[in-house]
C-alpha cells in the first residue's frame, strides 16, 4: 500500500521504502532520511529571487543576501522533480525534516483503505448569499 507523505514523496508500506511520486522510482528505506537518497544542489539565492532593483546601485534589492542565505534544492535522482527547496544560512546542516514511526504508520494504515490519489481536503463551497434582490 502506498501512503502519500508529501506532494512529491510516497512511502510503500510493504517494502518500507520511499518512492518518487513523479516517476515511481524506489529511493531507499523509509526508516531513513529521504534526503540522503536525492540529488542536492546548493544555489545562490539571487539565481532564484533575482534583484528587482539595480544591484550595482543599491544595497537591498529584493534579492536575498548570498552571505546570509543559501537555497538547497533536492531532486529525484531519476526524473529530477524538485521535492524540496530548503532555505538555510550558508553551511547550516540540512534538517532531518520527516522522521516517521514506520511501525506505527503500518498499524495505522492496516485499518484504512488505500488511496489512489492524495486526499487534498474539502473543496471550497462559497456560502449562500443572504442578501438577494427583492428580499427573498
Amino acid at each position: 500500500m502506498n501512503v502519500f507523505i508529501t506532494d512529491a514523496l510516497v512511502i510503500n508500506l510493504e517494502k518500507e521504502t520511499w518512492h518518487c511520486r513523479g516517476c515511481d522510482a524506489e529511493l531507499g528505506s523509509a526508516r531513513e532520511n529521504y534526503k540522503s537518497f536525492l540529488r542536492v544542489r546548493p544555489r545562490n539565492p539571487q539565481d532564484i529571487h533575482a534583484p528587482i532593483i539595480d544591484k550595482d546601485r543599491y544595497e537591498f534589492t529584493f534579492a536575498p543576501d548570498p552571505e546570509w542565505t543559501r537555497i538547497v534544492e533536492y531532486y529525484c535522482p531519476h526524473c529530477a522533480r524538485q521535492m524540496e527547496a530548503e532555505y538555510l544560512p550558508p553551511g547550516h546542516p540540512p534538517a532531518y525534516d520527516i522522521e516517521l514511526d514506520i511501525d506505527a504508520l503500518k498499524a495505522q494504515w492496516a485499518d484504512r483503505e488505500a488511496l489512489t490519489e492524495p486526499a487534498i481536503g474539502p473543496a471550497f463551497v462559497p456560502p449562500q448569499h443572504h442578501h438577494r434582490k427583492g428580499g427573498e
Binding site: 532520511n33 534526503k35 540522503s36 537518497f37 536525492l38 540529488r39 542536492v40 544542489r41 546548493p42 552571505e67 546570509w68 543559501r70 538547497v72 534544492e73 531532486y75 535522482p77 526524473c79 529530477a80 524538485q82 544560512p89 550558508p90 553551511g91 547550516h92 546542516p93 540540512p94
Partner: peptide
C-alpha cells in the same frame, strides 16, 4: 533544465561533506 539539475547536483553525502560547516560563518 531537468538534465541540468542532475548534472549540477551531487549526492547528499557529498553535499554534507563539502558544504556543511561545523560552526556558523564567522562574518554572520
Amino acid at each position: 533544465a531537468r538534465k541540468q539539475r542532475l548534472d549540477e547536483s551531487m549526492s547528499f553525502e557529498d553535499y554534507c561533506a563539502d558544504y556543511v560547516t561545523e560552526t556558523p560563518p564567522a562574518n554572520l
